[in-house]
Design a protein around this nucleic acid. Structure first.
Lengths: 188, 188
DNA sequence: TGAATTATATAGACCAGTTGTTATAATTAG
DNA sequence: CTAATTATAACAACTGGTCTATATAATTCA
């Protein structure tokens, strides 16, 4: 076959789904669209994901979460203070947003807002993703001197600010909200 | 007809759409579902909203935004400090979230994430809504002593934090993220 | 080794149900 | 009488999912 290694179509399906979910959410993303872009047949989709669209979406949310986690961990390893960490991360996001005409924000938030009340598997994937990100924020804050409990609450606040900034940035089509975080260091 | 005053169906359509968009977003909300709950005929929908689903959604986003704006303005009139304003607003949101099993967050954010890249009318409605809310935050911060420029940037940060907290709260199914805002007054 | 057997994976036709929209007829109210 | 509004029916396009047939790779056995 043209596909060299096994699970080739599986990988293509997930990558495509990640992209489409980020851009347009769950309900607006059709199976046929995913298949066409992935160049995968419908049989493969239901072979790898017997649970259909829902299972594919859950797997894509997990995969996208892991990518974000890796970015955060890399940043964790190359920064010392929380302030520096936040600044650099927001600057990164700012660049991505501008580059994509403010369409590529958080890869999972749209899907989660839609599907958390409807799908347990997707909800679980999202909760695990968010929790894993929050761990990184907490660690950095703890490294910076905060005690565990305080670090966790501050981590929640920082994550909320960033998620909200990405949302506002998408709607306003401007980097302003991310700049607001970068400029106001008193939130740390 | 049973409908007493004119535009009765129009109002019902908007109220229903507001509810459904908040719970499940744009793409997952079908016209048939809206019509059934509204007890309105299909003819009326296209009579009042010739632009179809998109126009109805835009009108609903506007209407929902105005409701939020009224809540904020009422709160503005009965609080003195920014800290009090934020605390009381987040407590209000916290209660609504818990009451609805963490499904009723921001009434427009899901729809906006989905549709901002696709629909100019919905995007416009959302931008105007967010801007009107931000004005209230800015006014309160200015009243508290901040100069205009600083007040606007802080208003953006506060709005982002609240939006993000509502998102996290929905996904985590817990009031934690809203509590994090209430507890950490150093963001002001 | 080479043939037989079994998993793994690909391929796409097909289905019933639903989508948003349009057209047209009937009804109501001023 | 004439607008305004309601009420249906029908529309093509598309939805996610099921199904069967086939090809390829891996494993087993002589």
């Amino acid at each position: 076959m043209t596909a060299a290694n096994s699970k080739h179509h599986r990988k293509a399906l997930i990558q495509t789904t990640i992209r489409l979910l980020r851009k347009q959410g769950y309900a607006a993303t059709g199976l046929n669209e995913i298949l066409k872009i992935s160049k995968a047949p419908k049989g493969s989709l239901y072979y790898y994901f017997p649970g259909g669209k829902e299972e594919l979406a859950a797997a894509s949310v997990s995969a996208a979460s892991k990518t974000v986690l890796k970015t955060l961990e890399k940043l964790e390893g190359t920064t010392t203070t929380t302030s520096e960490f936040i600044s650099r991360y927001c600057t990164l996001l700012r660049g991505w947003m501008a580059q994509s005409n403010y369409t590529e924000g958080c890869p999972i938030s749209t899907t989660l807002l839609e599907m958390v009340p409807k799908s347990d598997v997707i909800k679980k994937a999202g909760q695990e993703g968010f929790a894993s990100w929050k761990s990184v924020f907490s660690r950095i804050l703890a490294r910076d001197g905060l005690e565990m409990r305080a670090a966790q609450e501050k981590a929640t606040l920082l994550m909320a600010s960033i998620q909200g900034a990405l949302l506002l940035s998408r709607v306003e089509q401007s980097p302003g909200p991310l700049d607001a975080i970068i400029n106001q260091k008193e939130i740390l």
